[in-house]
Write a protein that binds this DNA or RNA. Structure first.
Length: 268
DNA sequence: GCCCAGGTATAAA
DNA sequence: TTTATACATGGG
């Protein structure tokens, strides 16, 4: 068991159930069971201590990074809130959101599955994907390796009931397994080039690419303010110009997404 | 039954 | 370059 003390600005439900990760399930006691990096754990918050049950000290750095504990989200939230009142409202609504640093391939595949889909069903498909093709580990199944996934027939993938996304999953797994996707470029290269790199995959457009870059490669600096967000800002504050989301655009975007999910009436 | 869901590929203007 | 439509599946 690992304990991180004095963790601020983290709410597990807000972070693990806000549509960025699809592998966490809440227990009645408010803790969450989940798997990342082929490790099955239960995470809970005891006061300001983050408890990772099922993990050893060897993995302290790994979980510190996963929950992005080295970034001061209080500072980020204050900065974002100053950019536009809509951002202030969204950040205030769920101040415990953090942007997780998930594994790139898992993020890519889960957001391919997310297209024209709902979170409940996304979780089901991801769950079947891991049970069918992931390595069994203590407490569940790891997310499948690209190589293993790339070897699956169309018939095998059909058991996931992912619908038209099955061939997208297959193409992504093949390209990643062959090394045709340059993760280093995605992580550190020009944002446009990183986006284009992921869009080499069939079924990956700007939205899936942006979500993969944000949640899988932590490109928090460049999430575009899309037309939908601009419309929301103009509707709520018609007298103001839509703001750029600034240095932490990806985090701002996640506050907004969560807020819109909980208050759909405000966003039409 | 009908509508829609963290969109994208494809065809057509 | 921009705009309509199909797409598989299942929850509300």
């Amino acid at each position: 068991m690992i304990v991180f003390e004095n963790v601020a600005d983290l709410d597990l439900a807000q972070t693990l159930d806000c549509g960025q990760s699809f592998r966490w399930t809440e227990r009645p006691d408010g803790s969450f069971d989940g798997i990342a990096f082929s490790r099955s754990v239960n995470v809970s918050l005891d006061g300001s201590s983050l408890v990772i049950d099922g993990a050893g000290e060897d993995d302290r750095a790994l979980w510190r990074e996963y929950f992005d504990l080295d970034l001061d989200y209080g500072m980020v939230r204050r900065q974002i809130s100053g950019l536009h009142p809509v951002l202030a409202r969204a950040a205030e609504y769920a101040p415990g959101i953090r942007v997780l640093r998930q594994e790139p391939f898992e993020t890519l595949i889960t957001f391919i599955i997310s297209q024209n889909n709902n979170i409940k069903r996304i979780k089901g498909i991801v769950s079947r994907l891991c049970e069918s093709f992931g390595e069994p580990i203590s407490g569940g199944f790891a997310f499948p390796a690209a190589q293993r996934l790339s070897e699956q027939s169309a018939e095998a993938l059909a058991t996931l009931r992912a619908g038209f996304r099955a061939r997208y999953i297959s193409d992504a797994a093949k390209k990643v397994a062959r090394g045709e996707i340059d993760w280093q470029l995605c992580r550190t290269g020009d944002y446009g080039a990183a986006r284009a790199e992921l869009m080499k995959i069939t079924g990956v457009g700007v939205k899936v690419a942006d979500c993969t870059l944000l949640f899988g490669l932590h490109r928090i600096e460049a999430f575009p303010v899309d037309v939908w967000m601009k419309r929301a800002m103009e509707k709520l504050f018609p007298e103001m110009a839509p703001a750029d989301f600034g240095e932490y655009a990806g985090i701002a975007q996640q506050y907004i997404f969560n807020y819109s999910r909980m208050h759909p009436e405000i966003f039409e």
